Amino acid sequence: MNRRLIVFLSALAAFVAFAAAVFLYQRHTLQAAALQASEQAGAMVWPHSPVMGAVDAPVTIVEFFDPACEACKAFHPQVKQILAAFPRETRLVIRYTPFHRETSVEAVKILEAARAQGKFEPVLEALLDGQRAWTAQGAKTIDRAWALAQSVGVDVARARQHIASGSVDVLLAQDVADLKAIGVRATPTFFVNGKPLSSTDPEALHDLEKSEVESVRKLPSR
């Protein structure tokens, strides 16, 4: 047999073996994540969690979200498109995941103070749009986040009083405990009706959501 052909076939066999190993590893990882998610289903959604979309929707997207995370910002337009595409069937539940430490914690406090004033979504949009400004290195960059919140109508004095009450600290402590129990290690991490998203491709989130919505639509009406 030609030496080049032997080398080529050997390389091809090695590549196939590697691809198979990667596939099996990814399948095992996904199955483990699904099992862990099902075991921790009660830790997915709490009454204190922010909700976007129809509160009684049959399909729930849970997003473990860090307002300082660039990937969360990149995914956000796709999430909004999904909510717009399936408005009656979908709700988004946000769980805070402060992986950027103090910067994330301060941003979560601003979001929760805004939610208490009925301004969660406008502040969320403002913080994501202006993310680079308030996550940059330097003293008092979080002041820029406060300025963004104020620009969309947040009463800063009332917001600071809300934060001082300690209620946000309690909520955040619960979210941190849950993300550890579920095994969340990166943001954003998504679950759709308890099923973990197996890809970092925003289109994969849409496909998983569409599949769940279609399953719901096939159910007989009550």
Rank of each mutant, 00 (worst) to 15 (best):
L124E: 09
D155N: 15
S198K: 00
L219Y: 09
Q81F: 08
A17S: 15
A74Q: 15
A34M: 04
Q40T: 07
T187E: 04
T97C: 10
S104P: 04
P50N: 08
W46N: 10
P50D: 04
L35I: 08
W46E: 11
K80L: 13
E70W: 08
N2D: 11
G183H: 01
L124R: 05
R144E: 12
K180S: 13
A19G: 10
T200A: 11
F23T: 12
R222A: 11
L179F: 06
A20R: 12
A20C: 15
M44L: 12
L30K: 04
R4E: 14
H76A: 10
K109S: 08
A113K: 01
R88S: 08
I6H: 05
N193L: 03
G42Y: 05
E102I: 08
F86R: 07
A14F: 11
A116K: 05
V184R: 01
G118K: 01
A11T: 08
Y25K: 12
Q117M: 01
E125Y: 07
A147P: 09
F190C: 07
T103Y: 01
A177Y: 02
L35Q: 14
G166I: 06
N2V: 09
G194C: 03
H162A: 06
A37H: 00
P98V: 03
S167D: 14
M52A: 15
H76T: 04
S151F: 07
R101K: 14
R115V: 03
R95L: 00
A33P: 02
A54R: 10
V152K: 07
K218E: 12
A43S: 12
V154W: 01
R95A: 00
A147E: 13
L12A: 15
M44A: 11
V51M: 10
T187K: 03
R115Q: 05
F65S: 02
V152A: 08
Q131D: 02
D207S: 09
I163T: 09
V176M: 03
L83P: 10
E214Y: 09
K119W: 02
F190N: 03
A173Q: 14
K109C: 07
R144F: 15
L172Q: 07
T187Y: 06
Q31I: 04
D178Y: 05
A116T: 00
Q40S: 04
A54H: 11
T60N: 09
Y25G: 12
V176T: 07
